[in-house]
Simulated assay, not measured.
Amino acid sequence: MNRTLSALLALAFLAGAAPVVDAQSARQARQEVEASMLVTGHVDIDREGKVSGHAFDKPEKLPAHAVNLIERAIPALRFEPVLVDGAPVLARAKMSVRLVATPVGDSEGNMHVRIASAHFGEEYSDADRTSVRRSDLRPPRYPMNIAQIGGKGTVYLLVKVGRDGKAEDVVAEQVNLTALGNARQMQMIRNTLSKTAIDNALKHWTFTPPEQGEDTNRDYWVVRVPVDFRLADDRETAYGQWSAYHPGQQQRPEWAAPTPPGFSPDTLVAGGVTPETSRFKLLTPFQG
């Protein structure tokens, strides 16, 4: 496992990296590269907030070390009891866990794998009338100047949805790059991908607001929607495989709720719509 991850960190960006003109900043960027894997599944929560069971999606696709790491951490998880009409109930939460591998010291092939972040929420359904649903989420066009230099990545959008279902405001909460350059190039790529995703969402995206439940009378709703920018010949990373990326800094607008402890936007799968808050509130850190 260590040699495989080390090779990934060393080579994954090099094949599609933008031209490098500043060797020092490029070396620094490579030191900040992380190998990552998203693992999804669900946990069952009892009336006391303890995990009574769990399952992984496509477990046959997952490497044993990833499964073992998460399974060692799950028994210690504690949630606030889920209440319905004031009484605790049994509940099932959709689980998404981001594992991150980083080099340790100067030893070649020595890697540290950890649980970086996790999200527990509802399983999305277009038929769920109690939450915001997607109506038209047409993808943005790839910026030609970014495609020409091999720039690519994922923009994690926070969208403020008005009562008419349109995006009132949009912020790029985080931008992770999957191609390297120097600091100036990467900032330009982040800025361009962010602006492209935001402008597209403001102009074209529409949602269906909640029609039932306690959230129907709100002035607006906030959802997260990750947007992938990949070149035409890029293959999507297969589930259960490691991928390399350069993580971006996070920002939060004043109209968004505080980020839950242990959560990072890049825990979410691109293309999905996720409410900013969840009824599943983790009380203990998810560590492993």
Rank of each mutant, 00 (worst) to 15 (best):
A15F: 07
A17W: 09
A18I: 03
V21M: 15
D22W: 07
A23P: 10
Q24C: 13
A26G: 08
R27K: 07
A29M: 12
Q31A: 15
E32S: 12
E34Y: 07
S36G: 08
L38T: 04
L38D: 05
T40R: 14
T40P: 07
H42N: 03
H42T: 02
V43D: 02
D44L: 11
I45V: 12
I45W: 03
G49L: 06
G49I: 07
K50W: 09
K50S: 13
V51M: 07
G53Q: 01
G53D: 12
F56Q: 03
F56R: 03
D57C: 02
E60M: 12
K61N: 13
L62V: 05
P63E: 11
P63V: 08
H65V: 04
H65F: 07
A66E: 07
A66Y: 01
V67C: 02
N68H: 06
R72P: 00
A73K: 11
A73N: 12
A73S: 15
I74Q: 08
A76V: 08
L77G: 01
R78A: 14
R78W: 01
F79R: 09
P81C: 02
L83W: 02
V84N: 09
D85S: 02
G86T: 09
G86F: 12
A87R: 15
P88S: 08
V89I: 14
V89K: 11
V89S: 12
A91H: 00
A93N: 13
K94Q: 15
M95K: 02
L99M: 06
V100G: 02
V104I: 12
G105M: 10
M111V: 07
M111L: 14
V113G: 09
I115T: 14
I115S: 13
A116Y: 05
S117M: 06
H119D: 05
H119M: 00
F120D: 09
G121Q: 06
G121S: 10
E122M: 08
Y124D: 14
S125Y: 01
S125N: 06
D126K: 07
R129E: 08
S131F: 11
V132I: 06
V132T: 11
V132A: 05
R133L: 07
S135I: 00
S135W: 06
D136H: 08
R138T: 10
P139W: 05
P140H: 11
P140D: 08
P140N: 12
P140Y: 13
R141E: 10
R141A: 13
R141D: 07
Y142H: 13
M144K: 09
M144Y: 04
N145C: 04
Q148D: 13
Q148S: 03
I149F: 02
G150T: 00
K152C: 09
G153L: 03
